[in-house]
Design a protein around this nucleic acid. Structure first.
Lengths: 204, 204, 204, 204
DNA sequence: TATGAATGAGGTTTCATTCAT
DNA sequence: TATGAATGAAACCTCATTCAT
């Protein structure tokens, strides 16, 4: 059975992704990746020069995929679409990503010291890109009047993304069978309305 | 110079904490811990049976410390203290913890599969404990009327804690020199009032 | 472009020779040889059964070439040619060979344990052949009276060849820009007259 | 059985020396060295950071040993000692070294490209040192009138050392049972008197 | 009790050789 | 015949843990 070159690289990356997700970087052996990809150990090294490189490529692929999905989603909205709707959709996408890639976020934290400097730079850029896209939506909301004028979006964006990530992690990992719609409705409520009762925050 | 047994154990744990924080679990060598603690490599094994055990003890100590601090802080409030004030103080404490213990969160994710089951249980319990304490404050807020009645605190607590952690990480790591007061004011605003303009949310 | 079989084999051998010369046996990868020869890695194995076989063939070719050149040179002399002249020319040839094939001498030493026994035998024979040819010249010198009668040619031949090899290596590697004529004149002086002053060595 | 630290390092170096001598650098496995030294594989790495470092240390030790022996020998001569006698003794020492360290000479040739630059420098210096010492003897001979005035010692020294090395290698390896005294007498004859018959070389 | 030298299982990586196309 | 992708044995090296002192 012949498998084209590009195809096999993808096969290995997908296998690596699965195992990294389950076990993290250090507990994943290259041999396991090979096995899961259905190739020999040596073959892995035909496509990647080291375990670290596999890790980097997997990471880059996932992050690019996230950006692609977010952009695609935003493109599908009409000009007049509701900002809250947009945010709601973005949360869906981000959540899906975050739940699958918990390991990646944390790997970045602990690995960051050993990563090649250009990868560090790449990550920084990617992160900024994502934040920027979401910030854009919020700024649009500010203009349209649905988002508070005095909101510092540079604080708000990571706050919300982080909140979603952790809340979801807790909620779904711990209870497992919770109602997603219920969870999202409440999260959106917090995000938009906050926790306080009748804050009566008026436009400045 | 004689050093009592308990003292030396603490010395090792503190050293381990410092190194784990900087390098993560896998990039920390037992020898480094010993060195940083000023004891011999063999001595470490007089006090702990394995590197994993050191990790567990460090983790437990940190988490217990967090709980202790939170409780202490709450105890210091008078009966009539403002809920927003309480939350504000809790955020301070949690933030301090989160910024120092990023690696711990990660380790939990990747290590969790290899950890002794009772430790997993312990972690779960500790987490619940922290959430419960903070939930308590929110429930108090609900009763006093400063927190929305329809807030699902089980969703809100991890959301907020996660938001704080990530927002802070982004903000301080990336900009470094940002004004903490400014950051906290805005975070509290988001937490309490949400992002939406004039939500005018009325008590049910 | 069609390349006849024999031609391609030669292409590979020449490439192998170049790379072996530069990097030695162990630091040369079969892939490099293939690349340098302009053929595919698999193709190399169509012509040779192993890396060792390539090595053997290269070695045999070089040694045969050396013998061929020496013989050709000697054949070009007239009957009455001066022995010292002959020796001088042989030194030129041997030096050229030695400087290019340092690696080969080494490989022989370290590889000898792993070489096929018949190759070992072959090497022994080839070596003897070279020695014999040069010995012949010396014996001719003895008869003609220009070489000492009591010279043990079996000792002298390797001595001189070794001396040339190492002296040249030192001289040219280290100083690089030395005058070849000067060097040879002095070497010939040592070879013929020795180091001693006015030894006045008389025929026994 | 306790073995002091320095002792064990020596044990490993000696074992490494034996195996390198027999098999060369590349065919020697670290595990073999460990085994031959009677220690565990990991122990080797307690004393040396890599196989290359072992090689370097072995080489340095041998070369230093050679220098030490030569110096010691020369120191033992009286002021009025015969130059020919000195040379004769030096040949003994050098020969003993060369026969045992064939692999080392050649390893230097092929390895030289991969060696750490400071080692290369070290080798260069060591080589010069040895040459210088022997040159010294020859210069002394020139002054005393027993060595030709027009001898270029910079050419002669490597020539003679190389000649000895290779001649001995051939002679003893191939015939094995040859008479050492006989061999040396003839070598000295070549070195001092040259091959030519009654050259009658007069001082210029 | 305290130590650090010794250990070897276990991991990563290389590369000669095979084999399907 | 020619190729180069695939392979896995074999080598190097690390480091948690043991153990003799």
């Amino acid at each position: 059975m012949y498998i084209p070159k590009k195809e096999k690289e993808k096969l290995i990356l997908e296998a690596a992704y699965r195992i990294f997700s389950q076990k993290g970087f250090y507990n994943t052996k290259v041999e396991e990746i090979a096995e899961a990809a259905g190739v020999g150990k040596g073959t892995v090294y035909e496509y990647f020069s080291s375990k670290e490189e596999i890790f980097e490529k997997v990471m880059q692929f996932q992050v690019n995929e996230l950006i692609r999905r977010i952009k695609k989603q935003l493109d599908s909205f009409t000009e007049s679409a509701d900002v809250e709707d947009k945010i709601s959709k973005l949360l869906d996408i981000y959540l899906g990503f975050a739940r699958k890639n918990m390991w990646l976020f944390y790997a970045l934290v602990t690995e960051v010291g050993k990563l090649r400097p250009d990868l560090k730079q790449w990550m920084h850029t990617a992160r900024s890109k994502i934040f920027k896209i979401i910030e854009e939506v919020m700024l649009e909301g500010k203009e349209k009047g649905s988002i508070r004028r005095d909101l510092d979006t540079q604080i708000a964006v990571p706050f919300i993304l982080g909140g979603i990530r952790v809340s979801a992690e807790t909620f779904f990992n711990m209870k497992g069978n919770i109602d997603y719609k219920y969870w999202k409705k409440h999260v959106l409520d917090i995000v938009l309305k906050g926790m306080a009762a009748s804050t009566g925050n008026m436009p400045d």
